[in-house]
Computed example of a mutant assay.
Amino acid sequence: MKIPLLQTSALSPALDAALADAYDVHRLWEQDDTAAYLARHGARIEAIATSAPVGASAELIAALPALRVISCRGVGLDKIDLQAARERGIAVSGTFGVLTDCVADLAFGLMIDVARRISAADRFVRDGRWQREKFALTRRISGKRLGIVGLGQIGRAIALRAGGFGMRVRYTGRKPVDGVDYGFEPDVVALAYWADFLVVSVSGGPQTRHLIGASVLDALGAEGFLINIARGTVVDQAALVAALSARTIAGAGLDVLEGEPDVPGELLVLDNVVLTPHMASGTRETRQAMEALLLENLQAFFRTGKLVTPAL
């Protein structure tokens, strides 16, 4: 008999089909009354397949007394109640490693775009303004100072790319990272004061909520740029909108927002911010690798009791 698995949302046609082929899949997002559905079927469910934007709440975990494993497509696990899983001894995996390069690539894309104003220049040409006025001078990337908030796998990949641009790199985090030559700055405000570009690359969740607030943005200053490819909750969005509007920072490149996909109207009218729709891992190659790893984690757990890329 197939193992009963709860799928929290549609993932992709290929992954949905692969899950259905290997497991007895219960498609939670299709149910009109999820509480009633879980009351009927929850006692049998041994696994959850989910994604980072959906996660698995404490309430959902509590409704599944036989749950043994949660396999997530994504690396941001802030919407999975890890404490609830830990208390129950439930294994949790993310698709760590396979999306690192694409997220780091987009971080640099945003950095180049907002500093060189590529999107703004495109609008300038399309609006017919090139024929009657000059485009304003922009800012260079090469040789500048890059501060990275969170030197995990993605942060290190961003730092590696910075070497190709001759940038100086410092970072901050809970503690220094062994085996790296970049300078460690224990205080994020001090890092922002030093940096020309500040890239946010930390996990979301209560511990990092509004880590980048008004004091950090003030320290970054009128010549500094903020890049966020982490989670929208890490940045105090009201403070950021105020800083961008007042030009107390030079600009921002944002792949994530608080309350996404809703976008504050104040951001939409600013020309010193580049906005992308949480697409950092959204390449065909990376998404295929993430989905293969979600399946591999489930298969490994039920075969050996161990995950390939465990979070717990």
Rank of each mutant, 00 (worst) to 15 (best):
P264D: 04
D16S: 04
G221N: 09
L270I: 12
H41L: 03
F197M: 15
V241P: 12
G109C: 04
A39W: 09
L82S: 07
G94N: 04
K79R: 13
F302P: 06
V98L: 02
G251I: 02
S51L: 03
G305S: 06
A35P: 07
A195W: 01
L293G: 07
A246K: 14
L67V: 14
R132P: 09
P206T: 07
F135Y: 11
G147T: 06
I70W: 02
P53W: 01
N297E: 11
L191K: 13
R170M: 14
P13V: 00
G305Q: 06
R140C: 13
G42N: 11
K175M: 11
L226T: 13
T248A: 10
G152H: 07
I158G: 09
A300H: 10
L244A: 03
R116W: 03
A39G: 08
S201Y: 03
S245D: 12
Q31F: 06
A104I: 05
K144A: 08
T100P: 00
Q237G: 11
G204E: 09
A39F: 07
N272I: 02
G282S: 12
A238R: 13
R161E: 05
K175A: 15
A190L: 09
G97Y: 08
L67F: 15
G221D: 08
L217Y: 00
D271M: 04
Y37V: 13
F301P: 13
P186R: 09
V263T: 13
E30K: 13
R231G: 08
G204Q: 08
W130F: 15
T34W: 08
D32K: 14
A300N: 11
G89Y: 02
N272S: 03
C102L: 10
T34Q: 11
G42F: 10
G55F: 00
